[in-house]
Each structure stands twice: as C-alpha cells, then as structure tokens.
Design a protein around this nucleic acid. Structure first.
Length: 704
DNA sequence: GTGCCTCGAGTTCC
DNA sequence: CTCGAGGCAC
C-alpha cells in the first residue's frame, strides 16, 4: 500500500489510519501469540508500529484508547480488531404499508424530477447479520461485521470457515467489497440447538442469534463447526464499477461465485413491487430461513448515485417489513425510571413471554399519555383504552427490537382494577415532577440534587461519543457514584480519582474485589489520556438538553476554542449580540440557545462545569478544513431553473462536497448558480459582485 | 403556517 | 429502533 507522508495527512485520514493500524497491529499480535503463525515479518510489524507512533505524535488528540503504542506487544486477551469501513455500511429506511411504498416511489421520482416509471429491484430481507468482505487482487483480505456502520469487527478468520464465502475470486475488480447477510437455516438451527442441549451447552433463542453468536466466536474452529450461510446483496468500495444496474450487479456477484437470493426480481414500479412483496410473504414459511421483509432498490446505479444518502440511510432503498409478531401477556407492574434530563419514563414489567423468538419481560410505555390511552395531542390511541397493572396486554417488538404494548384486553380486566396514577413527584428524590406546556414528558425538577439524574448524567459523560473512557462504563460509574471511599459524584471527580486513591494508604482500589493492579493502572491511564479532550466531545459530554453530538460539533466548529464558546453562551440572552451569533449558526435555534444559556448561567451547573474544565486541556477544533473539493466551505445559492437536476438534488450534492447551500444572496454568498429565469437573486449577486455561473459550469466545477 | 428532514432522548435484549 | 420536536425551507 502506498503511504502518504505523515505531514500530508488530514485529521480525518489520520484518524482512519490510526484505526486501521490499531486493527492491523492487533491482528498481527493475535496471529503471533495465539496462532503461532505470524502473518507479517518482524520488519513489517515494526514499520506499522513506527508509523502509528509518528501519526500519534503529530495528532496527539487522535490517539486511540486502544492505541498499540500503549500495549507491550501482548496478545489482546479478548475481542476482535476493529475495521474502519471505507464505505459506510448503512441501514435502510423502513416501511410497513403499501401506501408507504408508493410514497417512496413518488419521493424518489420527485427528487430526480423523473416523470415516467422507474425500475426497482425487490428481494427478501434476510434476518441475519450483515457482513462486508473485502477482496484485493481476488483474495479475501478482511471480513468485517457492520458494527455501528463506521467501524466493525474483524472476523476474517471466522468468515473463512463459511463454505458460501469464496476465498479467491477470478475476474473480479482489483478492489471489491462484497456485502451480504450471514444467516442460519431453520433446519441447521434446530440441529445445532439439539447438539448444544445434548452437550449441556446453552441453546439459542432464534436463528439470527445463533448466526451472530457463531460468527463472533473468538475461536474460529467453533465458527467452522457451525452451519452458517451467506447471501450477497450489495457492495462497498470498488476499484471499478460492477455493472450499470443493481440487478446486473447482483448477477455479476453471482457469476463471481457468491450465493445470491433466488427471489431477487426486477420490478417496473410500485405495483410490481407490492406484488413481489405478497409473493415473498406467501412463501415465507417454506423458505427454510428467516426473513423479515422485502427490500426495494432503484435499479439504475447512475440514479442511485444522484439520489445519494441522508445522514444514515440511502434515498434509493426501502425495507418493506412484514407485520410484527404479537403476543399476549400479563402486566405485572409499572416502574418509573428517571433519565439524565429528569424525564420520568414508565416501564412495563411483564410476565415473560416469547415474541419474535425472544423472551420479553420489560417494555417501554413511553409516557403518561400513552398509559392513559391518548397521544400528546389528546387523540385516543388503542381506542382510548388505558393500561392498568394486572391487565392482559398485547406486546410486539417495534423494528424487531424494542418491546412495546400495542393493545389491552378489556374483557379480561379485573373489576377492581384502577387506572394507573402517574406520579407527580420524582420517585428517586421526591422533587416535584412537572410537565411543561406542550411537552409529553414529566420531568423531575431536582436537577443535580436528584441522584438518578446525577448518575445518568455521569453515564452520558463517559459514553461513546463523549469522553469514552475505557474501563469506565455505565456499571463502573454507578459503582463509583455509590462508593464511600472514592466517590464520583460529578465529572470533575473522575479526574481526581487517581490522586485520591494515591493519597489513601489503607484502602487502595487495586486491593478491592473486582479490581487488580493491572486493571486499575489501565483505568487510571485511560482517564489520564482523556484529560486532553477535543472541544466537540466536551460540549456533548456536558449533557445539555437539546445539545447532542451533532449540535456539539456545530458549536465547536463555530467557536473553535472553549474560551470563545464559554464566553458566548455565558453572555447570551435573547436579543443580545451573543444570542444573535449563537442562533445564526445553521442548526442552532432559540430552544437550543436558551438551553445552553440556562446551563451556563445556573450557578450550581456552572460550578460543576468550571471544576471539570479546570482538570482538562481542551483541544481547539478548526473550522472544517477544506476537503479537496473546490466548493468545500463555500456558501452557494441556486436560482432559476435547473435543467440537469432538481433543487433537492443540487443541494444534497453540494452539501456532500462540503458546501453550504443558502436560500438568498447576501454579502456572505460565495457563488450563485443561475439557470434560465433567474431573477432578483441574480441581480442582487451582480450588485454585490458575487460570481455567477450557469448549471453546466457548476457541474464542471464539482467534477460531475 | 405547513411540511420535510434530522437530531435528541429514551428504550430492550444478547 | 422509534417517537417527538427543533430547525429550516417553501
């Protein structure tokens, strides 16, 4: 692989490469220590470690929690290496009705400004786990699970044991990432469970869990003994296109030796798609493997490219799900949980029941209104039936995951049952729990006084997008929160843990049950490493209401430094210049601005924030460095008629290249793209001296 | 004011 | 994963 000099790396490239190096070094370690068969030479291994160290030296903020430079070459005791997907593995938008399918087709055609019918592929949606197989020069080099879509787990050894997956391809593109689903057939699942039971091992709840559990075995020999299968249905990075259409691309994958689903067909529009859905549904029981719906994709790959992606799903695909499985059970009780924002969430405790292959004993009841049988607008749901303890309730798993209560059997309701009374005080701290006007949730007003809120905020603080401290997860936070010797009540306390432990000669953390010398040293090192924190992570970690990961990123990029951010939000009040600036940030409105001002202007909250920041070195964040696109960071306005694409499409493409698309021309506009019929906006641009180009020039500029 | 599109927050089970 | 709601474009 040709390497870019460390000096020339962008931050993003550096982060990606550090992740790749961590995975490569971990894999080499594992191969060396556990398999007795080093895959790379010592010199190559040293080169990887040197490069890793060089990149870390230039970008200290990017140093990973699992950095290889912190490891002494020891084999990783557990876990798989990480793989950064070159092309993200996305999820699909879901639909549950025929109406939503026709709407999908309309939306796609509107986006493309396509008046005629469009062709789509339709195929069964296999209920397994997705896998990405990377082939280089025809050799399988990496197999990775989906993970969170950005980073998956390296399961190459395990994937190589699956008979359906070719090790070697002939006539394939130089780089080819094949994506598909690993699954287990009903017959194999039943036989496996029989074997497991006979051997006194645990059995699996359903084929999907069995497939997932089998693929994620640390010992590949166990995976080899499990009857896993594979269907290819998509692809990631390619060195050259596979075909011009989805349907022929799948045929190409088949000819390369991958199993593809025989129920994949080409449809000329929504009616044919729905007909195929009904056909697949009718055959569902006899297929011999689990499916949970039908997937539709725009067939023309050029059109797929034009449609592009939303934040986490492609615009050109839709998963049409089968109706969820339902089950009746008894509602044993209703508990109230308190979240980090103080939200009181009711949870149903159920007599355990199997729904869709999994035993469910808890289900969400959303909020007060849901239990009462009305939605937040006062409209009756479930026919206005309320939910009472002791009722027989119908449960399903929304999206096959989250258990919910769908219905109540009034005929089985006991005559002495009483409506559930939602508490108006926090069950954890006793503070009043109020509902704000127009809000559907009741919130504890205790703030930091409420132990439940305090501990949930700490959990948020150490969560993945925030400080993400290895060895300090939700469980440990809860333990330290209640610990009499080394209490952690606020985020700042985390950073004084090591010093407090050192100052206590008698009851050292390392001598406690569940801790040892090594794990304590690792924990303290992980905390130390996070003393240096990028501004965006810090802002997110504060857990300010309405300010999530994305908003935190916007704020960090706008203000750049903690000092600038802190000054601005401390001063911001409706109408003043700081407020104006804050709300002028695209994506930050009045609600978020008020929430930020509230947090920074409340003395107790402010004290906690100041104590925390005093412990940290906050890394400034540069305004988004220009990508290699010529329009990155530029503000563009489209006006007049666009002939080669629709407005929505032009906007999406421009934004994908890092440009900001505005609706009106101002002094801050960098470029106006004017089509025929452009009127006042073009005139305004002329007056302000903003460059104006036509659509063709725009397309050339962005290299389309 | 209305209608997208995203984001934020809360949730379950393995 | 889903719901509710914030933010913004039309």
């Amino acid at each position: 692989m040709k390497e870019k000099p460390v000096e020339a790396l962008t931050e993003r490239e550096a982060a990606e490469e550090l992740a790749r190096l961590a995975a490569a070094i971990a894999a080499a370690n594992r191969a060396y220590h556990t398999l007795d068969a080093p895959e790379i030479s010592d010199a190559e291994y040293d080169a990887l470690k040197r490069r890793n160290a060089a990149i870390e030296a230039r970008f200290p903020a990017l140093k990973r929690a699992d950095s290889p430079s912190d490891q002494v070459g020891a084999a990783l005791a557990e876990g798989f290496g990480k793989v950064v997907h070159r092309v993200r593995m996305l999820s699909l938008e879901n639909a549950f009705s025929a109406e939503e399918v026709t709407e999908f087709d309309e939306r796609v055609r509107k986006f493309l400004n396509h008046s005629g019918a469009l062709a789509y592929t339709a195929e069964p949606k296999i209920d397994g786990l997705s896998l990405s197989l990377r082939y280089e020069e025809g050799e399988l080099v990496v197999a990775a699970t989906r993970g969170d879509g950005e980073v998956g787990e390296n399961v190459t050894e395990n994937a190589l044991t699956i008979a359906d997956i070719p090790r070697r391809l002939t006539g394939a593109p130089r780089v080819l990432e094949v994506r598909g689903e690993v699954y287990m057939s009903h017959a194999d699942f039943a036989a496996l469970n029989d074997r497991q039971a006979a051997a006194g091992e645990k059995t699996f709840a359903n084929p999907r869990n069995a497939a997932a559990g089998s693929l994620r075995q640390l010992d590949a020999r166990i995976t080899a003994s499990r009857p896993l299968k594979f269907f290819a249905y998509s692809w990631g990075e390619l060195s050259e296109p596979l075909a011009k259409t989805q349907f022929t691309a799948i045929a190409r994958l088949k000819s390369l030796g991958f199993p593809t689903n025989p129920l994949t067909v080409l449809c000329d529009g929504p009616e044919a798609m729905l007909a195929h859905y009904r056909l697949v549904e009718a055959q569902r029981a006899t297929l011999g493997y689990d499916i949970d719906g039908v997937v539709y994709k725009v067939d023309d790959l050029a059109l797929q490219a034009r449609l592009g992606f939303r934040s986490s799903t492609p615009r050109w695909a839709l998963a049409h799900k089968f109706p969820a499985e339902l089950a009746w059970t008894e509602l044993l009780g209703i508990d109230i949980q308190v979240g980090r924002t103080g939200a009181l969430s009711p949870v149903a405790r159920l007599r355990p029941v199997t729904v869709g292959g999994v035993v469910v004993s808890n289900a969400t009841l959303h909020n007060e209104d849901y239990i009462a049988g009305r939605d937040s607008k006062g409209q009756p749901i479930r026919g206005g039936k309320d939910i009472r303890v002791g009722d027989w309730v119908q449960v399903y798993r929304a999206g096959d995951v989250i258990p919910k209560v769908a219905d109540v059997d009034l005929s089985r309701r006991k005559s002495d049952s009483k409506p559930f009374v939602f508490p108006d005080r926090c069950p954890e701290c006793g503070s009043p729990a109020n509902r704000e006007e127009g809000d559907s949730v009741r919130r504890c007003t205790g703030g930091l006084i409420c132990p439940a809120q305090a501990v949930e905020r700490l959990k948020h603080f150490v969560s993945r997008g925030a400080f993400d401290i290895e060895g300090l997860g939700a469980k440990q936070v809860e333990m330290f929160f209640n610990d009499p010797i080394l209490p952690v009540k606020t985020p700042a306390d985390i950073f004084t843990l090591a010093a407090r432990d050192a100052a206590n000669p008698l009851q050292k953390l390392k001598n406690r049950e569940g801790f040892g010398e090594v794990s304590v040293a690792k924990l303290f090192a992980a905390i130390e490493a996070r003393r240096t924190i990028p501004l965006d992570r810090l802002i997110f970690a504060l857990g300010i209401r309405h300010v999530g990961e994305v908003a935190a990123g916007l704020l960090a990029r706008h203000y750049g430094t903690w000092e600038a951010f802190e000054t601005a939000v401390t001063r911001a009040a409706p109408g003043n210049p700081e407020w104006q600036e804050l709300t002028s940030i695209n994506g930050i409105g009045a609600v978020m601005a008020q929430s930020l001002a509230d947090a920074f202007q409340n003395p107790a909250e402010r004290a906690a924030i100041d104590a925390l920041v005093a412990q940290l070195s906050v890394q400034p964040v540069q305004a988004r460095v220009a990508t290699d696109s010529p329009v990155a960071g530029k503000t563009v306005v489209f006006t007049g008629t666009l002939e080669k694409m629709t407005r929505a499409e032009a906007k999406a493409r421009a934004e994908a290249l890092g440009a900001k698309v505005a609706g009106s021309v101002s002094a801050r506009t960098d470029l106006v793209v004017a089509g025929p019929g452009a009127g006042s906006k073009a005139k305004e641009a002329e007056r302000l001296g903003v460059p104006i180009i036509d659509e063709d020039a725009w397309l050339r500029l962005i290299g389309a």
